[in-house]
Structure formats: C-alpha cells, structure tokens
Design a protein around this nucleic acid. Structure first.
Lengths: 185, 185
DNA sequence: GCGAGCTATTCTAGTACTAGAATAGCCGGG
DNA sequence: CCCGGCTATTCTAGTACTAGAATAGCTCGC
C-alpha cells in the first residue's frame, strides 16, 4: 500500500473529513474558499482523485441511495481519517524543497541583456506588490477567521514580503554597479 | 509551435547555450553545481528533454562525427538562443503561484492533536535551521561567486529566513494560548 | 587481446495529473 | 410534457516527466 498521500489527495481527503461531500460540491468549496491560491486541483481531477481515494479505501460512498442516482456523496473511512491526520502532520513537519521558476530564470541571467533584466525584475516587483495588496485585503476582510486559517495567509505573506525585500536589494545592487560583467563560472 | 519552455527545458537549454554538451555531461554539471537544490531533473529525464528540444529545433547535434559513435554533443540553434533569452526573461518577470505542501498541512491542522501539531512545527523549525546553516556554509565557501549565482542563494536564504520567523511567531502563539480551540469555519 | 567497469544512450512502463468533450439526471417554465 | 439550462459524473486523450532496466561503446590493466 502506497501510504503517502499527494498534496492533491490530502486536500480532498481533508475536505471530506470536515464533512461528507460529492464531487461537484468539492469543486464549489475549493473555489469558494479561494483554495486555488495554494493548491492545484483542476475540476476534472476531483473525480479522478476521488476514485483513487476510494480504491485505496480511504473514502467510501455514503449510503448509496439508489442505483443510477445523480450524485455520489463520499465520506472518510476510519483508515481515511487516520491517513489524513498522519499526512497533515507530515506535511507540516517536513520541509520539502520548492522549485520556483524564478531561480531557473536567475541561473540564466547572463543570456538576458542588462536593461531587459532590470525591466523584468521591475515587472516582478510590481506583481509582488499587487499580490501582497490582494492578500492583505483578503486578511482584512476576514478579521475573525480562525487561527489556523490565518496561519495560511501569514505564511504566504511572510514569503511574499521576503521576496519583496530581496527584489529591492537586488535591483538596487544592479542599478548601483550596472557595468560589472556577469560571467558564468 | 508551443513557444513556452518548461523549467526543466529552460534549465537544460541554458546549460547548452553556455557550452555545447552531451547528455551525460549535463548530468555531471547539474550534480556538480548543486542545481538539484532548485531544479527537479532526474537523470533519465535528460535524454527525454534533449529529444524534445531537438524536435522543436532549439538544439541540434554538433558535427555528428561518425555513425554509431558513443556520445552526441548538442548545441543551441539560433532559434534556441532566442527562446532561452525569452524564457529566462519571462521566468524572472512572472510571479508564478507556488504550492508548498506545508499549506495543505496547515489547512488540515484541526485534524492534528495539538501536542502533535506543536511537535511537527518543532521538527520543521529544526529542518529550516539545518537547511539555513547548510546554505550559509555553501555561500561562505564560494566568496567570489559571480553576482548572478549569488542572487540564487540570496533568494533562497531570504525565503528560508522568512519561514523561520513565521515559524517562531506561530509556535509562540500556539504556546501562549494553547487551549483556544480551532474550528473549521 | 580481452574483459571489468566505466561512460553514454535508449527503451519500456508507469505516475499524477489535466483539458475538454460526452453523457446523463434534474427541475422549472411555457 | 418537453425542452433549456443547470447539476453532476464519466471518458478519452494527452502532458511532462520518472524509475529503472537494457544496451552498447570505450579503455585500461593485465
């Protein structure tokens, strides 16, 4: 038995532990809570993932009312609940490497003409500022959100603010000594 | 023509723009430079990716010496160079969403018993401290690395430091008022 | 002059999704 | 009563890799 859950599987399983739901409803919850900000679950994946979770015995159809019925409601099994707790704990405890595209771009800086590089960094800075404003507005709009939900926003904010500071410092560095040639080692 | 390059494709293409190389050599360079810290390219993917880049006309075999020869050296085409610059620029300029597993874990905090959650956060804090020490040692070991290479480390350091601060704050919060029940909305 | 153990590439089979089309039940208005 | 437009699920075909085995040249010592 492949005991590890993928992030997508854990997300859905967690939602089903919260309350039994059918596929379409999961889609609505994911959209309504803005979970697309931090998970990658396409609409068509939901049924696929549900099928996998069911095949592994982690969720089961809740009282199948009649055959040919329209909706199938799934709830977690006991094994599913345990797997959810275990996986959530592991997801918090384990620092996994992350591979942001920008690092690949930075590794290829030498092929970008200096003025284009500065322009690209400026565009990124604008995106970061925009995203940050959006996130802060979302936090302000929900002043009584539970602590655990707040933690998700705080984490994202902290990362974005760090990126903003890094960007400011690096852009300043490039502007202060723009001629210094960058060469591959 | 699918003009976008995946991060993996851009990584290899960039290495070939730097100098023509064959597959095995790419593997060695990736390993030697510690690029596995920020890219996900398995050994067996290299030939697969090289094939895709060749089929798209972005790289070409450099003077195929004789048939049946052992190694195939690839270099970028003109089109490949342009694509590399364009893709690197886009990778720097565009802020892409990132989906760290820890956020999925945080979203599922309510299913984790409070003491286990605190322990999990402590384990994460230890991993972060370890990674940070490792990264700082790597920076110190290369005091004359080119600025663009330094930028990659600085970015990673900034993100990790932000995570460390967030963790410290959140752990303190949980310790200060541990009883406050967390409920799903 | 041959075979051990590298170097280097190819092949097969799989994973974890994803996009989008197809299908089918359901429900209210005309 | 039937049809348009939701709700809800399933299916087909793809993408972007990945793991690991198979294969084959290369070369150095004995």
């Amino acid at each position: 038995m492949p005991s590890e859950l993928t992030p997508a599987e854990l997300t859905l399983l967690g939602l089903l532990v919260e309350a039994p739901r059918h596929g379409y409803e999961l889609e609505e919850v994911i959209a309504a809570r803005g979970m697309r900000e931090w998970t990658e679950i396409g609409f068509s994946s939901i049924y696929y993932l549900l099928g996998k979770l069911r095949d592994r015995g982690l969720v089961a159809e809740v009282d199948p009312p009649a055959r040919g019925k329209a909706r199938k409601v799934f709830g977690p099994t006991e094994e599913g609940r345990r797997a959810c707790t275990r996986a959530a704990e592991a997801a918090v405890a384990e620092l996994e490497p992350v591979f942001p595209r920008v690092l690949v771009g930075l590794a290829n800086q030498p092929v970008i003409p200096p003025d284009r590089l500065r322009a690209a960094l400026a565009r990124r800075a604008a995106s970061v500022a925009g995203k940050l404003a959006e996130l802060r507005a979302a936090v302000a709009a929900q002043p009584h959100a539970p602590r655990f939900a707040r933690a998700i926003f705080d984490y994202s904010l902290a990362q974005l603010e760090a990126e903003q500071r890094w960007l400011a410092a690096y852009r300043a560095e490039l502007t202060d000594s723009p001629d210094q040639e960058d060469r591959r080692p």
